[in-house]
Design a protein around this nucleic acid. Structure first.
Lengths: 143, 143
DNA sequence: GTATGTGCAAATCATTTGCATTCTC
DNA sequence: GAGAATGCAAATGATTTGCACATAC
C-alpha cells in the first residue's frame, strides 16, 4: 500500500503538480481492497469512513491515476466505468457474463508478445492493453 | 449489404419482434461505409440524407444489433461509445494512440484458441471478445 | 506568493423514458 | 386488432465546470 502512494508522489512531482491529503486518502481507499470500484461506490466508501471527499475530486484524480499506471478501466457497465488497480505489470483480462455480469479475471501472457510485435509493426510505444471476453456463464446458459 | 439486412430480418423474426423501414434505413446507413460510427454522427449522416430518423430509434436499435452480432462496441471516447460493424466472424482488435486517437485495426487469430480454452476452463458459452492495445504512435512520441 | 486543488452548486451531454400516434404482422 | 415501434419532449444520471476559498510548494 505504501508503494502506490510513493509511485503517485513521484508521478505528481515529475508532472510539476501538487499532492494533497485528499488525493492520498482516495488512493489509500482504492488500494484498501482488491475489488473493482466505480466512482460512486468509492465515494460512498469514503463517506462511510467520514472522509470529506467530494465526487469532483475523485473524478479529477482518475485521469492522473490512469496516466500514472496505477489503475485501469476494467469495463463499462450500468452507464459508467468500473476501474481496477494494477499490481505492477499484471494487467488482468476479463471474462464476463452478458446476462448476470459475473466477471472472472485471468492472465494471458501471450499478449506481451503481441504488444512487442505490434510495437514493431506499427511503430508504437505500447502502454498497455485491455482484453474482454464475453459470453454466458453456465448458470445463465441453463435458463 | 443485402446480407446484413437479411441477418437482421431473421434475428427479428426469431425474437418475435417487428421490422420497420426505420430500422432498415439505419442498418443500411451503418453498413454504407466501413467506418466506425457513434450515435450522434450516424444521426447526422441520416439527417444529411433527409431520412427522418430520431435518435431514440437509433439508441433502441443498437442493443438489437449487438445481440444479433452485427456490430460491436469498438471503444469509448469523448463520453460515448464508438461502434463498428462486424463482417462475419472477423472481430477486429484495435491499437490506439492515447494522444491523437489514431486507431489501427488488426486481427489476432490466437484469440480464438484462447476463447476455446476459457470456455472449457470456466464453463462459459463465449460470444466474442474485445482487445484494445493502447500507447503512443510515432508522431506523438516525437512531440 | 502563486498557482493548483477543493467543495459546492449549476451546467452539460449522452442516454432513457412516458406517452400519444402510427405501423407491422 | 393487438402489440410493437416511432418521434417528441421531458427526465435521468454520470461527469464536468465556474467560482470562491483553502493550501501545497
Amino acid at each position: 500500500m505504501k508503494d502506490e502512494i510513493e509511485i503517485f508522489r513521484g508521478f505528481i512531482r515529475k508532472k510539476g503538480l501538487r499532492n494533497t491529503p485528499e488525493r492520498e486518502t482516495i488512493i489509500k481507499e482504492i488500494f484498501a481492497t482488491s475489488e473493482h470500484f466505480d466512482v460512486d461506490e468509492l465515494y460512498l466508501r469514503l463517506k462511510r469512513k467520514r472522509k470529506k471527499i467530494s465526487k469532483p475530486s475523485i473524478y479529477r484524480l482518475i485521469p492522473l491515476l490512469l496516466e500514472a499506471g496505477l489503475i485501469q478501466e476494467a469495463y463499462f457497465e450500468d452507464g459508467h466505468f468500473h476501474y481496477e488497480h494494477i499490481y505492477g505489470d499484471e494487467l488482468h483480462c476479463h471474462l464476463r457474463c452478458l446476462e448476470c455480469g459475473k466477471t472472472i479475471e485471468f492472465k494471458e501472457k501471450s499478449l506481451k508478445r503481441l504488444e512487442g510485435s505490434l510495437a514493431e509493426e506499427y511503430d508504437f510505444l505500447i502502454k498497455g492493453h485491455k482484453l474482454e471476453v464475453f459470453g454466458y456463464c453456465s448458470k445463465c446458459v441453463k435458463k
